[in-house]
Design a protein around this nucleic acid. Structure first.
Lengths: 329, 329
DNA sequence: TCGAATTACTAATTCGTTTTAGTTGCTATC
DNA sequence: GATAGCAACTAAAACGAATTAGTAATTCGA
């Protein structure tokens, strides 16, 4: 900046005023032009570290996530966060801990040293977490997870509404015997979606038939078997709500194998909206989307208002899961 | 640091020496203990901006990528980069430009202002790029892309070897009539894999039959049709090499539809190793993986040596694509 | 016509570190 | 008994901006 000042024949202060467009400073247009010309001539660029040191603002948010691998579309969460941060001209520091506690700990230290203005603590599937206590030193928003005592604001998908929406979509197309193939591992998604399924049935005056609710691991192979069982039931279900799209893949195979058609004979609805699967299956899979992108955005939005000093209670935000209509119901 | 110094009864300089374990400074163990005690008592943490200002090192790498959406597994590239950066105790600044030139431009400015020590310019599918000229102000490595004049170092997948590997795997299992369903849009992958296919055939003394090479868009639907055509050929191929796993999905459907078995009647091999598809298909799909994770790692590795001041020619690094054996051939 | 207000700037301090160049008091040495 | 050498520190100057508190010259108003 001193070099620029010298070349433009002004003081370093003036350069700073011009660069930052300081309202309280009166600088003639002619001087401004000279300063900018000098800046371009020298290729000067502000040093964010020096600026940050003085202003005490890093213009940086940190994102600590456990895994990006399991569900690739959860990446859209990061994307949503990044784009929102970007819109607020902040950068996002991303660290993936691979679920290792020590990495998480040092990542946190690193971020605090860099004076991040807020922290996103994200997980790739919706579950309870116990983040290190230091996260409370800085505004923090949980993404796709929550703490037992709900003492930190969280952005999570509305599993119940999602389950309700899927079931309702089937009911509205006239289905009355709707099977639900649920996950086996206890997790919010399992309980939430089941509850949504029950509420939808109840709301439309349909009975809850426990024989129609099955559990298996969420892969195509296991679901293939479970689906065949369901199809052999005396009063065969006309629709299957699968816990996720991977399961739907297995269900498709099973239905086709016994010579039934989708959706004419058996309708299938999934969950997750994994484009890769849902759009490639034949017929394309109707499913419920996890609103990852929007969750990322909302989380940063919230973080930004918190970082601005606003005092808010640690609300748990449930983001609705929209129905993605394709051709399987 | 001054507060810590006061509490420990030493000078700020001493605190700095203790914190950084400066070898040239002689500090008694007793004093070190007092300093650390004071640090913990006050919860002091170094300010990375102040440190960076003084040392002229940001300990940060920048990653500019166009899209994370198209091929979700390309995310592993970012993961590889992040973990390697982490290992060198550097942080990764990630910006996704969604392919917009203006975002790319400002992202670059932002990163230069933050004095990133190196830049990764990544694309989600392998193709030629023209990055903004400012990338040359700082060590830069291209990831999954390259510039026309090869004036920047690049890390790209070895498409030719990949095509060769896939074809060879089929040949070694006794196949002699091997179809190849290729992409239609001109891109390095199309040419490279085709060349690999040809070289493998030639190497094993098999004729190249143009009727066995088809082109279609890489989705299940279109591939379904093309596969049916292939299966109706008088001298039907016994194996199909699909340009990617999405295509393989369509091929599976077509083969099953006409009552043939995989792999007994027709073998199928894919490309990309999209776990989501390859592992869920029945039978699980043998495929060739794009070494995204390793590419990310290698890119950062290279970047780190460049950032260390080493002068290297802008080599194009071809990372081999390994065969992932499952059950479809 | 003179003081007040305004315009157009600048000097100097500060942010929180690292680092260079000392300083002080001992101990060992010849 | 002076001195070199060492151990154990400290003072002060950067690093590159932002910001506060001025200053000099001009304009304005009564």
């Amino acid at each position: 900046m001193y070099d620029v000042a010298r070349l433009a024949g002004v003081s370093q202060t003036t350069v700073s005023f011009v660069v930052n467009n300081v309202a309280s400073a009166a600088i003639s247009q002619e001087t401004r032009d000279r300063v900018w010309a000098a800046i371009h001539a020298l290729g000067w660029r502000p040093n964010a570290m020096a600026r940050g040191l003085r202003t005490r603002h890093s213009q940086t948010l940190g994102l600590i996530s456990d895994e990006v691998v399991t569900s690739p579309y959860a990446v859209r969460m990061i994307l949503g966060a990044q784009e929102k941060a970007w819109a607020g001209s902040q950068m996002l520091l991303v660290v993936n801990t691979s679920g290792q506690r020590d990495i998480e700990q040092t990542a946190l230290q690193f971020m605090l040293e860099r004076r991040v203005e807020g922290l996103l603590y994200a997980t790739m599937y919706h579950h309870e977490v116990e983040p290190p206590p230091e996260v409370r030193l800085v505004p923090t928003v949980l993404l796709n997870c929550f703490v037992a005592d709900r003492s930190l604001p969280a952005i999570v998908p509305d599993e119940l509404q999602g389950g309700y929406t899927a079931t309702e979509a089937l009911i509205q197309r006239g289905h009355r015997r709707i099977a639900f193939i649920n996950e086996t591992i206890p997790m919010p998604a399992l309980f939430g979606r089941l509850e949504g399924y029950r509420q939808a049935l109840a709301n439309y005056g349909l009975p809850f038939d426990p024989t129609l609710v099955r559990h298996c691991h969420s892969n195509a192979q296991d679901t293939f078997a479970v689906t065949r069982e369901l199809l052999e039931l005396p009063d065969r279900p006309t629709a299957i709500f699968c816990f996720n799209d991977k399961m739907a893949m297995g269900a498709y195979d099973a239905i086709k194998r016994v010579g039934l058609r989708i959706p004419q004979d058996v309708a299938v609805i999934g969950f997750d909206n994994l484009e890769l699967i849902a759009a490639q299956l034949y017929p394309p899979l109707t499913t419920v989307a996890l609103p990852h992108y929007e969750m990322g955005q909302r989380a940063v939005e919230l973080l930004q208002t918190l970082a601005a000093g606003e005092q808010l209670p640690p609300t748990q935000h449930f983001i609705p899961c929209p129905l993605i209509e394709r051709a399987s119901i």
